Simulated assay, not measured.
Amino acid sequence: MQRIVKFFREVGREMRKVSWPKRKELTNYTVTVLATVTFFSLFFAVIDLGISELIRLILE
């Protein structure tokens, strides 16, 4: 039991050393991730549509 308590104390000590992002940084990172995901989703949707149409043309 003592080892578990020691472990959580050390975890708490280490968590205080962590450099957390500021609100503005976090907002910028979130917008960047959402924009990237949106771009790649649309990109792959267009590629998928193109390949599907190409295969339909070949098989008909």
Rank of each mutant, 00 (worst) to 15 (best):
M1T: 06
P21Y: 12
N28L: 06
E14Y: 07
W20E: 00
G50Q: 09
S41C: 13
N28W: 02
R9T: 02
P21G: 12
L57P: 01
M15G: 06
I51H: 04
V46I: 13
F44P: 12
L34R: 08
N28C: 08
K6Y: 04
V5S: 12
V31P: 04
L49T: 08
E60D: 10
M1I: 07
K22A: 11
V31R: 13
S41L: 12
E25L: 05
F40M: 15
V31D: 07
S41K: 05
I47K: 02
K24Y: 03
V46S: 04
S19D: 13
V5W: 01
I47G: 02
E53M: 02
K17C: 00
G12S: 08
V33S: 15
V18D: 02
I4P: 00
F7E: 02
L59N: 01
K6D: 14
R16G: 09
V37Q: 02
E10K: 07
T38F: 14
S19G: 07
F44T: 14
Q2A: 09
A45E: 09
V33K: 13
F43C: 13
L54G: 03
A45F: 08
L49Y: 03
K24V: 14
A35H: 06
F44V: 08
F43I: 12
G50E: 07
R56K: 06
L49H: 04
G12K: 03
K22R: 13
M1L: 09
K24C: 01
A35S: 13
I4W: 06
V18S: 04
F39H: 11
R56P: 00
A35D: 09
M1W: 01
V31E: 11
E53F: 00
P21C: 12
A35W: 00
G12A: 03
P21I: 04
L59A: 10
Y29D: 05
Y29S: 07
T36N: 13
L59C: 02
R9I: 01
S41F: 14
L57I: 08
T36L: 15
L34D: 13
A35K: 15
T30W: 03
Y29M: 15
R16D: 15
W20N: 01
E25M: 04
F43P: 10
K6G: 07
I4S: 06
Q2F: 06
T30C: 07
F39E: 08
V33G: 13
V11K: 05
F43M: 14
R56F: 02
G12M: 03
L57D: 08
F44G: 11
E60N: 09
L26A: 15
Y29W: 11
F8E: 10
T27A: 15
L49D: 03
P21N: 12
I47M: 00
L54T: 01
R3T: 05
M15K: 10
F7V: 03
S19C: 03
V11G: 05
E10G: 03
F44Q: 06
W20A: 00
L26F: 12
L42R: 04
V31Q: 11
I4V: 11
L49M: 10
